[in-house]
Amino acid sequence: MNIVECADVKKTYQQGKIVVTALGGVSLSIEKGGFVALAGPSGSGKTTMLNIIGGLDSADSGRVTVNGSTLGKMNQSELASLRLHNIGFVFQAYNLIPVLSALENVEFVMLLQGVPPAERRERAKNILDDVGLEDTYNRRPAEMSGGQQQRVAVARAIVSDPAIVLADEPTANLDSKTGQGLLEMMKEMNEKKKVTFIFSTHDKMVMDYARRLVLIRDGLVAGDEIR
């Protein structure tokens, strides 16, 4: 069963007077429970693809379906609701809320979902324990290392059991050892919780971990390899 289906997705950007084609007609299906890397050089369109799948950006044409919902027909509020209940995000720059502690950052999504306080605290603690951050509940992002912050970001992405986690260059700001630890952890979550992971990356280590590697070049799918 496919959790993401993209058919002839096109996207262009206006840069000054120049029109830049980010996606030139991408068709792609991603199966539920996949551990998929969208790989390619900078400017190839992989982040744009990820943003469109996550409903953060809209396609100019084509059809994108995520977990059964067709994104093109949804307004901003419906897209927000889709992201809240179905999609977790991990960003290259971690993007944690600086005034909240690690525990509160993980709780935040559940707060938006309306999960009762006691339950969301319990679940946040459990997931932080799972990612090896049992000693950092009350630390704020500024008091944590990059690797720890990215683990908190992963914990936040998966704590509410989303159908998909979209990770944009998750290891780009980490050293290779920390990056490998993070990938091991995400792979474990993928296997344990059956969460679909889709990465955009040009990091070879991430490509090596992926069970499916989709190569994107010049806004088109240039290769699709299942390991």
């Binding site: 996550g54 953060l56 901003q76 509020s77 927000a80 609701s81 889709l82 992201r83 809240l84 209940h85 999609i87 995000f89 960003f91 993007n95 809320i97 600086p98 935040f108 999504v109 938006l112 979902q113 936040r156």
Partner: peptide, 16 residues
Amino acid sequence: IREFGLFKALGMKPRW
């Protein structure tokens, strides 16, 4: 601005 982008990415509705 980045934080408000994050809020939206996480599913926070505009009225929130």
